[in-house]
């Protein structure tokens, strides 16, 4: 009897461990949890790079904001650039688009923008402090902020088609 109990206990522990490890298969061990969802977007006042002046996020209260974190050395960022340019032209009247460069040098960014032009506002985060405030965990990452200044979601992949972007932006346009 005692032995049956012991064996059953051992087998159930084994089953549990195997189950837990098997559950790990689908998941990405590098994924970082995102807790800023449904929290107010941290404010920032930083220098523009596409033209003179500064951007104060608080000025856009009442408008939906699309905030794209990127860097010049990041290849996938270049992949999604045409999609974001298209989106800024398509949704530019309904939402504010801000590109924010971090983990980069100002010089790199300026020459990159000179070569490629900027369709929407581009700002520079020299010490990545805004990125830390927003809990950025990779690049590129796109944050969607609603009219009330609440972060609705973030998209951690590069946009590869206009359809992908359209699907993501709907929620903050309502």
């Amino acid at each position: 009897m005692k032995r049956v109990v012991a064996v059953t206990a051992a087998l159930s522990i084994i089953g549990f461990i195997i189950y837990v490890m098997a559950a790990g298969f689908g998941t990405d061990p590098h994924e970082v949890p995102f807790m800023m969802k449904n929290k107010p977007a941290p404010n920032f006042i930083i220098k523009r790079l596409d033209k003179e002046g500064q951007i104060n996020l608080a000025d856009y209260k009442g408008k939906p904001v699309v905030l794209n974190f990127w860097a010049t050395w990041c290849q996938p960022c270049k992949v999604e650039q045409p999609v974001l340019d298209w989106a800024a032209q398509t949704y530019g009247d309904k939402a504010v688009f801000i590109g924010i460069v971090f983990e980069d040098t100002e010089q790199n960014t300026r020459s990159f923008l000179q070569q490629n032009g900027a369709v929407y506002a581009q700002v520079f985060d020299p010490r990545s402090t805004v990125a830390v405030d927003y809990a950025v965990s990779g690049v590129p990452e796109t944050y969607f902020i609603n009219r009330q200044g609440i972060i609705v979601k973030k998209y951690i992949y590069p946009f590869q088609s206009p359809a992908q972007f359209t699907e993501q932006i709907q929620e903050i346009l309502e």
Binding site: H30, V32, G138, V139, I156, Y157, P158
Partner: peptide, 8 residues
Amino acid sequence: LVLSLVLA
């Protein structure tokens, strides 16, 4: 194409 800082 899951990309993060380190994988990019």
